[in-house]
Design a protein around this nucleic acid. Structure first.
Lengths: 146, 146
DNA sequence: TATTGTTATACTCTATAACTATA
DNA sequence: TATAGTTATAGAGTATAACAATA
């Protein structure tokens, strides 16, 4: 059983690498990276946010957010707008292009999921997600206790 | 169903992030990174290798391997040995510490897998790995065709 | 001529620390 | 005094291009 456990973990890791590489390749075509998309995603879902809020959400330093926002602003996905009541802060806001890109990513995310699971028998898909839930719960617990 | 597919993909991605963060934290304690461990791992399993072979195995530039090997050599996990028949090449070789570390990582990999799957009912584990196989196959096919 | 690995240069993500402008 | 974001500095991973030594 030990071996089967280790193999399953290896498979998850391979899956993780393949997914990561595949997404990175896709994003690169549009001049994006995973980290920058994370910002795009958050602003798309929460609306205009301060850099501080972004840093807390991504769990990254304020300095890092400055760099990510610089990159996204420079490539036209977002703008920095003044905060209406706090002159220290800026509101990271999506441009039209940023919004369109976020919507596209959302759509492609769904297409990608269909490609992965679409031809899987229903009971198999259910079994997979049940196991996935279990693993995720175990891992969340282990991670939280650190 | 669309939504269930997308949620399952989200779960896989969350799993991927948690695993990655957890491993990175662990490795950092020993002065290692994912990329460097990849090198350590390959040399541990294949025996002494040229940097060219490492670059091909990791799918990374020769320049990048120089940096990774520099780091691992500097921290005492590997040494560069002369190639017996090709004076252009070097053989990346594990030190005792490098070998001991690789063996430890291997052991902890098994422990980690047991933590993730150990308390999962047998049939559930089977269902999970079956689905995982399916997803991995679909993804490998999609990735290969690029 | 082709290959191995290095130096030179550059970009991205990440961090801490010091500093400015505001709260 | 505390907070938001910047500049300064640094390390890691990644890339291409030019180059030296060797095949």
């Amino acid at each position: 059983m030990q071996v089967r456990f280790a193999s399953a973990l290896d498979q998850i890791l391979e899956l993780s690498v393949l997914l990561n590489d595949d997404m990175a390749r896709d994003l690169e075509r549009r001049g994006l990276t995973r980290s920058r998309v994370h910002v795009l995603w958050l602003v798309h879902h929460h609306g205009p946010m301060t850099q501080r809020a972004l840093a807390d959400a991504i769990n990254v330093s304020a300095r890092n957010v400055t760099g990510l926002v610089d990159g996204l602003a420079h490539t036209g996905f977002i703008t920095r707008e003044p905060h209406p009541s706090d002159r220290r802060a800026t509101l990271v806001t999506l441009t039209d292009r940023g919004t369109a890109t976020a919507l596209n990513l959302e759509r492609e995310h769904g297409q990608f999921a269909r490609m992965l699971f679409g031809d899987m028998p229903g009971h198999q898909f259910d079994g997979f997600t049940t196991g996935l839930d279990h693993v995720l719960t175990a891992l969340r617990k282990a991670t939280a206790s650190i």
